[in-house]
């Protein structure tokens, strides 16, 4: 009986662990949304941005499901719109934020997107060194991010001091 109890305890702990399979993607998606809340786009106030925020993502990106779940779960009055795009390259996308995968990088011009005031975010390594705006990465057991401030020079997008302080690296 003692061993049956032990097995049940082990099994219940295992179920708890299995429930968090997609935790990494959900946290990444939440970080994307949270960072965007602290960005001011040209000729817009921060408060307006939150309501009108458009986050674009290619429909084969591995964060699509997590961002969709997050969009569905957000509170009224503090919303973002998730826009699925077929392909970033060559398409005139109307977005505040573009979430890019490693595969997308071959088909986009990161400088052109920065000039169009599109904040590019990716979890691809070396993304900010390649000209992207925000790179989400693993820092030990936690998530972290790096910032490339070039978008501020190119388009007048303003990154708040709060996210600059929380960044692992700012270039």
């Amino acid at each position: 009986m003692r061993y049956v109890t032990i097995l049940l305890l082990v099994f219940s702990q295992g179920l708890a662990a299995a429930a968090v399979d997609d935790a990494e993607s959900l946290v990444k998606a939440s970080v994307v949304y949270n960072i965007a809340r602290f960005v001011t786009w040209p000729e817009k106030s921060n408060e307006e941005n939150a309501a009108d925020l458009i986050i674009c993502i290619q429909n084969d990106n591995h964060l699509v499901t997590a961002l969709s779940d997050l969009a569905a779960a957000q509170a009224r009055g503090d919303t973002f719109s998730l826009r699925l795009v077929e392909r970033f390259g060559g398409q005139n996308v109307d977005c505040h934020v573009a979430v890019l995968s490693e595969d997308d990088l071959d088909q986009v011009d990161l400088s052109a997107m920065a000039r169009d005031a599109i904040l590019t975010i990716s979890d691809t390594a070396e993304f900010v060194n390649a000209g992207g705006s925000i790179e989400i990465s693993r820092v030990g057991r936690n998530m972290g991010f790096s910032i490339n401030r070039r978008i501020e020079e190119l388009s007048g997008v303003l990154l708040s001091s709060q996210i600059l302080q929380l960044a692992q690296k700012v270039i």
Binding site: S12, Q13, A16, A17, A19, V20, D22, A23, E24, L26, V27, A29, S30, V31, Y33, N34, I35, F38, A66, D69, L70, A72, A73, Q74, A75, R138, G140, R141, N142, M143, G144, F145, Q162, I163, L166
Partner: peptide
């Protein structure tokens, strides 16, 4: 037994950036 405290999208959406970065994801 708890693997990660916040895994529900509705809970995550209410967290601050600092709170998100402090989550033990891995």
């Amino acid at each position: 037994a708890k693997a990660m405290p916040q895994t529900n999208p509705s809970e995550l959406v209410g967290l601050t950036l600092e709170e998100l970065l402090s989550i033990n994801v891995y």
